[in-house]
Design a protein around this nucleic acid. Structure first.
Length: 312
DNA sequence: CGATTCCCCTGATAGC
DNA sequence: TGCTATCAGGGGAATC
């Protein structure tokens, strides 16, 4: 059984976690052929809706390329097929060897870090060398699609995804443009509205930032999460831009966060925890000024910040 | 068109 | 102790 703490924590793979995951998958399962697929929760497969068809179409396909777009993990398969997995809240991809035991997957031999049975593996691929790729997902919110190249290019949410925050071409000028209204009226440069926290998390503005990293970025930039983006001058925007790059790079360098049940595909935890300054630290002292971290709710999500460092 | 609310799901927690 | 109600949370859909 997974230890209780593992299960109790929320897990939110954002850009650094997804980046870590694809790096790992590229080392372990590239050029492997999918020989079989199992599920006990066909609902997470959105396309094709019929699992029998999904199974037939993915069988014997070779995994040729693994990359990501925002938080979406994309597997380019042979014969032009594309497998897309969005882990949402509690999904994570694991690579290893398991045996089906009473409906649950039990790791063969030692397995992962004290884990005996993973009751949350809901989708599992067996590869041509016997290695397995499992999608573990406590909440079953994950989304899986198997599509053709054409279908892939026409997926609405992927088409509307904003730029990659760490792309070399994503300059400060480009970042600034993301805060301007798409269709600026003749004359006045109308700006995007809303609170900075929600705008940063809007995948159509910038791809890959979620609840954890948006809190951390705003703490780093000393900007209040509820600050309206209209109020952000050049200086503040630059601070956010710099903080975004720093925090996301740190996340990748440390291979993702680790306080929740996020694990790399080999079951190890990431190391971002030491750098987590505000997220889920309500009531703790701000490491910069000593004030107590506060937690508020905005747009249906929690936001953590230091009331002294991040003034409205 | 934009902003808000609901919903998917399951485990933890608070309240009785 | 044990039951029930509530909550979290990415993102898509429905609704205001």
């Amino acid at each position: 059984m997974l230890c209780a703490r593992f299960l109790s924590e929320q897990y939110m793979p954002e850009l650094p976690e997804v980046e870590t995951t694809i790096g790992f998958l590229n080392k372990r399962i590239i050029n492997r052929r999918i020989k079989d697929v199992w599920t006990d929760s066909a609902k997470i497969i959105k396309k094709p809706a019929d699992f029998k068809i999904f199974k037939r179409e993915i069988k014997n396909k070779k995994i040729e390329r693994i990359w990501r777009k925002g938080k979406n993990i994309i597997f380019n398969l042979s014969e032009g097929k594309i497998l897309l997995i969005h882990q949402k809240l509690t999904g994570h991809l694991l690579v290893g060897y398991w045996i089906l035991d009473n409906g649950y997957w039990k790791p063969k031999s030692r397995g992962f870090l004290g884990e005996k049975v993973n009751t949350y593996i809901h989708l599992l691929f067996t590869l041509d060398n016997g290695l397995m790729l499992g999608l573990s997902d406590l909440r079953k919110f994950a989304k899986v699609l198997l599509v053709s190249k054409d279908e892939f290019e026409n997926l609405k949410d992927l088409r509307e995804l904003g730029p990659e925050p760490l792309d070399k071409t994503f300059s400060f000028e480009k970042f600034k443009e993301r805060f301007e209204n798409k269709k600026a009226a003749k004359g006045e440069p109308r700006q995007r509205r809303g609170k900075i926290k929600q705008v940063l998390m809007d995948q159509t503005v910038i791809a890959g930032i979620g609840n954890i990293y948006s809190d951390e970025i705003l703490w780093e930039a000393k900007i209040h999460p509820l600050e309206n983006v209209k109020m952000l001058d050049n200086g503040k925007l630059r601070k956010i831009y710099k903080a975004m790059q720093k925090i996301l790079k740190k996340g990748i360098e440390l291979r993702g966060e680790s306080f929740s049940d996020y694990r790399m595909p080999n079951g190890e935890k990431g190391g971002f925890d030491k750098y987590r300054k505000v997220y889920r630290r309500k009531g703790e002292k701000c490491s910069r000024c000593g004030a107590l971290i506060e937690k508020i709710k905005t747009g249906g999500r929690s936001a953590h910040f230091c009331p002294l460092c991040q003034k409205l």
